[in-house]
Amino acid sequence: MALKKNRAFLKWAGGKYSLIEAITAKLPKANKLIEPFVGAGSVFLNTQYPKYLLNDINPDLINLYKILQKRSDQYITDSASLFVPANNDEARYYALREKFNQSNDVYERAVIFLYLNRFGYNGLCRYNQKGIFNVPFGRYKAPYFPHKEILFFAEKSQQATFTCQSFEQVFTRARKGAVIYCDPPYAPISETAKFNSYSSGGFSISSQSLLAQLAEKTAFERKIPVLISNHDTQFTREIYQEAQLTELQVNRFISQNGGTRNKVGELLALYHLE
C-alpha cells in the first residue's frame, strides 16, 4: 500500500509533489537531509530523515517557516482571518499586497504572504529588482485555507533548522552522514524562457554551473551525496556529465489553461560514491 503523500501548504511553481516517488527513490539514506532551495517543502514533507537543514534565499519564506515552528496556533488564527469572501476582491488584494510591500514587521509579512500565495495568480512568488512582490490578483472562486497542511508542516518542522543563505554557504555546513537535495530555479528550456525572478536576485547560468561543480566536489571529495533536479537540456547534460542521470517527463503547471500544460523533460542528477 502506497504511503499517503503530504501536500505543501503553499502553492508553488515547480513544486515537487508530483515527483516525490522519483526523487525519494534516488535519495540515499542519511542522518540529515539538506535542502539549499527548499521552496514549499514537498520533499521535506514526504521523507523520513531524523534531521533537516532547510534553506531558501527568500527571507519571507524562511521567516514564515520559523514562525510556524514556534507559534503555529497564533499564525493559523491570524492568517485564516484573511480568508474571507470580502478579501477575494481585486482592490482588496492590491491593498493587502501594498501593505505587505510596505511592512517591515516579520510576523505581519508572514500572515499576508500566505494570503498573497493563495489569492494571487497561479501561486507565483515573484519580486521585482527592488524586492517588491508584484504577482497580480488570481481571480479564484474560493481560495482554500490549508489548515491541516499548515499543522502537519508545523509539527514536522520541529526536526528542522531553517536558514536564509546562499546555496554556497549551505554546502559548507554539510557534514559526512548528510545528503543534499537541490531544486534550484531551473535552467531555461530555451533562450526566450528565462523564468528566474523567483527571488529578487534571479539565478544565472553561471550559478547553475557553480552548483554542479559544488555538487561534484561535495560528493566525490567530501563523500556527501548530492541530488539535483533540473530541466533536461543540452546545457544541463553538459554541466551534470559526472552525475548519474535519470530522465523524467513532467507536466508543467505554470499556465492556467490546462490545454497548454505540456510535458517537459527533466533530469535527476545524482552525485554519489557508491
Rank of each mutant, 00 (worst) to 15 (best):
T161C: 03
I76K: 04
V111T: 09
E108C: 05
K99P: 00
T161H: 07
Y144N: 04
T172Y: 07
P85N: 06
N104K: 13
R109T: 10
Q102V: 13
Q165W: 06
F162N: 09
R92A: 13
T161E: 14
S81I: 01
I150N: 01
F133T: 14
Y140R: 12
R175Q: 12
Y94Q: 11
D89L: 03
E168R: 12
G123M: 05
R118C: 03
A80C: 06
P136C: 08
S166E: 13
N122W: 09
A86L: 02
F162C: 09
H147S: 01
S157V: 04
T172Q: 15
A110D: 03
S79N: 10
L116N: 03
P85Y: 11
Y107K: 08
A86K: 14
P146N: 04
R139V: 05
F171P: 05
F100G: 05
G131D: 08
Q169E: 15
G120K: 11
F133Y: 15
G131S: 12
F152Q: 06
R92F: 06
R118I: 13
A178K: 01
T77P: 00
Q165N: 14
N87A: 07
T172M: 11
A80P: 03
L116T: 08
Y140L: 11
A174H: 07
N88A: 11
A142H: 13
F145G: 06
C164A: 11
N88T: 12
P146W: 02
A160G: 10
A95T: 10
N117P: 14
F137A: 04
L151I: 14
E90Q: 15
K148W: 03
T163E: 03
Q169W: 05
F133Q: 09
I76Y: 08
S103G: 08
H147G: 01
F145R: 09
Y181M: 01
E90I: 08
R97Y: 08
E168G: 05
K130W: 10
S166C: 06
R97T: 08
V135F: 10
F171Y: 11
R118S: 03
A95G: 06
D89I: 00
E108Q: 13
Y107R: 07
V179K: 01
L151D: 00
L114G: 07
T161A: 05
C125R: 02
A95W: 05
F113E: 10
V106I: 15
E108N: 09
I76V: 10
R109K: 14
Y121S: 02
Y140F: 13
R97W: 07
A174E: 12
C164T: 10
N87Q: 03
L114F: 03
F152V: 02
E155F: 01
I180A: 04
G120S: 12
D78N: 02
F167C: 11
E168L: 09
L96V: 01
G123E: 06
R139K: 15
N117R: 14
A95P: 02
A95N: 11
A160S: 15
D78A: 07
T172G: 07
H147C: 05
A160M: 15
A80W: 01
L116W: 07
G138Q: 02
S81R: 02
F171M: 12
A160R: 12
F171N: 05
R92Y: 00
A178T: 13
A154F: 07
G177Q: 09
E155P: 00
I180D: 01
S79Y: 06
L96E: 05
Q129M: 15
L114M: 04
K156I: 11
D89G: 00
